[in-house]
Simulated assay, not measured.
Amino acid sequence: MFQNRLVNVMVIILVSFTLIGVVALVLFNYFETPEAGADPSIDKIIENSWQTEEITTNLNGDEIVRASFQIHTDTKSAKNELEKRDFQMNNLIIRHLAGLSAAELQSQKGIDEMESELRNKMNEMMDEGKIVRVYTTQRMIQ
């Protein structure tokens, strides 16, 4: 290869260290990422969640609803984006609630559907990360 034996040994050592470093980095990243099916811990959920203020709006009819939501994102950067988009998210929630009736919000199935639809609409607005789940933390229909 090279004329000097010392240069050959140094090149082999440098290539070996580089390969060991790359293998160690790949293994660290592989074992560090959580499994796809694993549920995050409650601390991770809270860390990546944003709580809306209490929202009061008219429903489709004569009733009004007072509600608040906890929105769980997949990453910290998604939570930061969500906090910046708070006015857009509140607008989206109010517009969605205005299209629902009190009967739709009084059943568990109706709440599940509303949360799912809100999550899908919010994900369309997000640039970084995604909304994992929308939790209804308070709901009162009058």
Rank of each mutant, 00 (worst) to 15 (best):
I94K: 09
L97A: 04
I13W: 00
F31S: 11
L59T: 01
Q3C: 13
L6S: 13
L82E: 06
Q88L: 11
I12C: 02
P40V: 01
E54G: 06
M89E: 06
M122L: 04
N60E: 13
L92A: 07
A102E: 13
V22K: 05
G129S: 05
E54R: 13
A78E: 13
N60R: 05
I20M: 14
L6T: 12
I13C: 07
N58E: 13
D74K: 05
K109M: 10
Q108S: 11
V22T: 12
T57E: 05
E47M: 12
E54D: 14
L97R: 05
T52V: 06
S41P: 03
I94S: 01
R139T: 09
L118Q: 00
M125Y: 10
V26L: 15
A78R: 04
E115N: 15
V65H: 01
R85H: 08
N120W: 04
E63Q: 14
L118W: 00
Y135A: 14
E81N: 11
A38F: 03
Y135P: 11
P34H: 06
D74T: 05
T52G: 02
N8E: 05
E104L: 01
W50P: 00
F17V: 03
N29L: 12
T18E: 10
A24R: 07
Y135I: 09
A103W: 00
N48E: 03
I131P: 04
D39Q: 14
Q142P: 08
V7Q: 06
R95G: 03
I111P: 03
L14R: 06
K109T: 15
F87V: 15
T73G: 11
T18M: 15
A38N: 00
W50M: 09
K79F: 06
N58P: 13
A24L: 09
Q106Y: 08
A78I: 10
N60F: 12
K130T: 03
D43T: 09
I12L: 04
I12M: 03
L100F: 11
N4C: 14
T18D: 12
F2G: 06
D86F: 10
K109C: 07
R139K: 08
R85W: 06
I141Y: 02
F28C: 04
V65E: 01
E117Q: 08
N29M: 14
G129R: 00
T73F: 11
I141K: 03
S107I: 10
